[in-house]
């Protein structure tokens, strides 16, 4: 900044161009730290991962180029297909319920709860680390000693094997993460709601619209770009579920909760098949890419109805 001011005084006639050049230098400076991180931790690993997916690599010895062999193997790998089905089941349950609940909480935050304290509490689960959340729920949902099953028994219902049954394990893991993330998602949606001008609601109220009509006809449509962003980012996060599974079930029973990230982790770090694991990662990336583009198109997230 000092440099800039000095130059302005010395050479007022060249002010415009010199300022632009200086802005560029400053911009580079500000962008550099983030760019270094982005290149070192995202771009380079992605490129290397893509390369490794065409190789046979056990981490100890240099990778050997095998062409499309890993991808051919993928097609007949039942475990991989199972893990995709399991992941889709997880994402479906997670996203549907998380979004609905978050929307509900956001509306409550906007319409009912003014207290910053209560709003803060809604965010609490998000502030606790994933591993701790998973552990706490693992204990609470334990078949023999968990408090949840004690409660079920008092009400007169049979005990449930939340993490031990093949049917319940994915819904259970999905709900643990819904519990953790709904407050945060609600906050994002709430922020979007704040940007909807109050005048619209006032006009609607004058016209005699009910609360539900206002929600249906004003809030939802005007929230669309925001909601689309929230759904896309949480869906990408949801596809990448790992820590909760790793802490609670490690993919079991049998492969009932062997989500795709868990499978990739096991392939790479316990079987040392880094090449094949990279190929599965590339497939996951492609799935996410297709879904994101599709959603962006479908929801027209880049245009707002407000203007």
């Amino acid at each position: 900044m000092t440099t800039h001011r000095m130059q302005t005084i010395v050479e007022p006639s060249r002010r415009r161009s010199s300022r632009r050049r200086n802005d560029f230098a400053v911009a580079i400076l500000f962008l550099a730290p983030a760019t270094v991180g982005f290149v070192a931790f995202y771009v380079w690993p992605s490129i290397r991962g893509l390369y490794l997916s065409f190789t046979d690599y056990n981490i100890f010895q240099a990778p050997v180029w095998v062409g499309l062999k890993n991808y051919e193997k993928l097609l007949t790998d039942d475990k991989m297909w199972n893990s995709i089905v399991v992941t889709l089941e997880y994402v479906a349950i997670n996203i549907v319920f998380q979004t609905i609940l978050a929307l509900l909480i956001a509306v409550l935050m906007q319409r009912l709860i003014r207290s910053t304290f209560v709003r803060g509490i809604l965010l609490m689960p998000y502030l606790v680390s994933n591993v701790v959340v998973a552990l706490v729920w693992l204990w609470m949902l334990d078949y023999q000693m968990g408090i949840t099953n004690q409660l079920l028994e008092w009400i007169g219902l049979p005990r449930l094997m939340f993490f031990g049954s093949e049917q319940l394990v994915i819904p259970t893991i999905a709900f643990v993460n819904i519990w953790r993330f709904m407050g945060y998602t609600a906050l994002l949606i709430f922020a979007g709601m704040q940007s909807i001008p109050n005048t619209v609601y006032e006009a609607a109220r004058v016209d005699g619209a009910s609360e539900w009509q206002m929600f249906r006809r004003i809030t939802l449509p005007l929230l669309r770009p925001n909601l689309a962003m929230v759904v896309i980012t949480s869906m990408i996060g949801s596809f990448q579920v790992f820590d909760t599974v790793s802490v609670t079930t490690q993919g079991g029973p049998v492969d009932a909760s062997n989500v795709i990230q868990m499978y990739i982790y096991k392939l790479a770090f316990s079987q040392f098949k880094f090449g094949y694991a990279s190929a599965v990662s590339v497939v996951l990336m492609l799935i996410l890419l297709v879904i994101s583009i599709f959603q962006l198109r479908l929801t027209r997230a880049n245009s707002s109805d407000l203007v």
Binding site: Y143, Q144, G164, P253
Partner: peptide
């Protein structure tokens, strides 16, 4: 013996808890 999934702890914990 507990059925699959009934116990999420190891044998040591089950003995210690009297289960």
């Amino acid at each position: 013996m507990p059925a699959f999934g009934v116990s999420s702890t190891n044998a040591y914990a089950q003995i210690a808890a009297g289960n």
